[in-house]
C-alpha cells in the first residue's frame, strides 16, 4: 500500500501536468548568518496536495513565506507556474496562517472581502464572490458577525474563505488547525478535503502532526530539524474520496507508522 520512502533530494517530475511550485537550492539565513532553512529542492504539481511535515523551528513557516514571496530566499530560486515568484500578483496565492489573522474591527464579510477590496474589484463582484466563499466554508449565516463573536474553528473558516475568495491556483496553509480541539480539527480536515476535491487547487499544507499529514495529503514531505531539508518523501496511497473510514483503516495506521519512523530517523541523525 505504501509506495516509496526514498531519500530523494529532488522529486522526479511530478506525475502528469504542470509544475505549480518549483524550489531549487533555496536557503534562508536570518541575521548572524544562521541558516534556518535548506537547501531545499521541491516540485509540486498543479492540483497536488502536499504536506510539509517537520519539527517546530525547522523552517516550515519560512518555506511558505518564501513561496508566497513574503520573504526573499538567501540563495536559490522559487518559481510559481514556471515564473519567478518575485512577480507576485500574477499568480494568485491564498495563505492561511496558524492564527486566524483576522481584522478584529471588521465583520466576517469585511475580512473575507479584503483581498478583493485591495484589488479594487467592482462592488457587485465582491459581494457575489464573498457570498460564494462563505457558503463554501459553511459560514453563510455568520457574515455580519465580528471575529470576537466566533469560535476558534469558525475563525479558521473565515481565514480559509478569505484565502479562497480570489480563486487562487495555490493555497499555502501554515499549521492552520494546530490550535483547534480534535473534534473541530477532524471536521475541518474533512471539509478541506471536500473543498480540494471540488476546486483542485495546489495545496501546500504545513503541519507537525504525522496523522494530519497522512490523512490529508497525496504526498508527505518529511523535513529535518533546523536547518530544514527534505529527509524523506511518501506517496500516500488511499482510495478516494477519503473520509472518517480512512482515519481508522489499517492502511492509514501503517502509513502513519512509516512516516513517524522517518521523522524520528531525520531527527536522530541530526542529533548524532
Amino acid at each position: 500500500m505504501v509506495d516509496i520512502a526514498a531519500q530523494t533530494a529532488i522529486d522526479p517530475a511530478p506525475p502528469g501536468g504542470a509544475v505549480a511550485v518549483r524550489l531549487r537550492g533555496v536557503t534562508k539565513c536570518y541575521r548572524q548568518g544562521v541558516r534556518a532553512l535548506g537547501p531545499l529542492d521541491l516540485d509540486v504539481a498543479a492540483g497536488e496536495f502536499v504536506a510539509l511535515l517537520g519539527p517546530s523551528g525547522c523552517g516550515k513557516s519560512t518555506a511558505l513565506r518564501l513561496i508566497a514571496g513574503l520573504a526573499k530566499p538567501s540563495s536559490g530560486t522559487v518559481e510559481l507556474n514556471a515564473h519567478p515568484a518575485a512577480r507576485r500578483g500574477e499568480h494568485a496565492i491564498g495563505f492561511v496562517f496558524q492564527e486566524p489573522t483576522l481584522m478584529p474591527w471588521a465583520s466576517v464579510r469585511g475580512n473575507v472581502a479584503l483581498p478583493l477590496r485591495l484589488a479594487k474589484a467592482p462592488r457587485a463582484e465582491i459581494a457575489a464572490r464573498v457570498d460564494d466563499a462563505l457558503t463554501r466554508v459553511g459560514l453563510r449565516d455568520a457574515a455580519e458577525a465580528l471575529p470576537r463573536e466566533l469560535s476558534g474553528g469558525m475563525k479558521m473558516r473565515v481565514s480559509l474563505a478569505r484565502a479562497l475568495v480570489t480563486d487562487p491556483d495555490i493555497l499555502l496553509m501554515d499549521e492552520p488547525f494546530a490550535a483547534l480541539d480534535e473534534i473541530t480539527r477532524f471536521r475541518l480536515n474533512n471539509d478541506l478535503l471536500t473543498l480540494w476535491r471540488e476546486l483542485r487547487k495546489t495545496v501546500i499544507f504545513v503541519t507537525h502532526s504525522v496523522f494530519e499529514s497522512v490523512y490529508l495529503s497525496q504526498r508527505v514531505i518529511v523535513m529535518t530539524p533546523k536547518p530544514g531539508r527534505i529527509a524523506a518523501e511518501f506517496h500516500v496511497a488511499s482510495d478516494e474520496p477519503r473520509d472518517e473510514a480512512f482515519r481508522t483503516s489499517v492502511g492509514y495506521a501503517a502509513q502513519c507508522r512509516e512516516v513517524s519512523a522517518a521523522l524520528a530517523r531525520a531527527s536522530s541523525t541530526e542529533a548524532a
Partner: peptide
Amino acid sequence: NLAGLFQLYGA
C-alpha cells in the same frame, strides 16, 4: 501576519 497578508495581495 496581517501585514504579510496586505503585502501578499499587493496593497
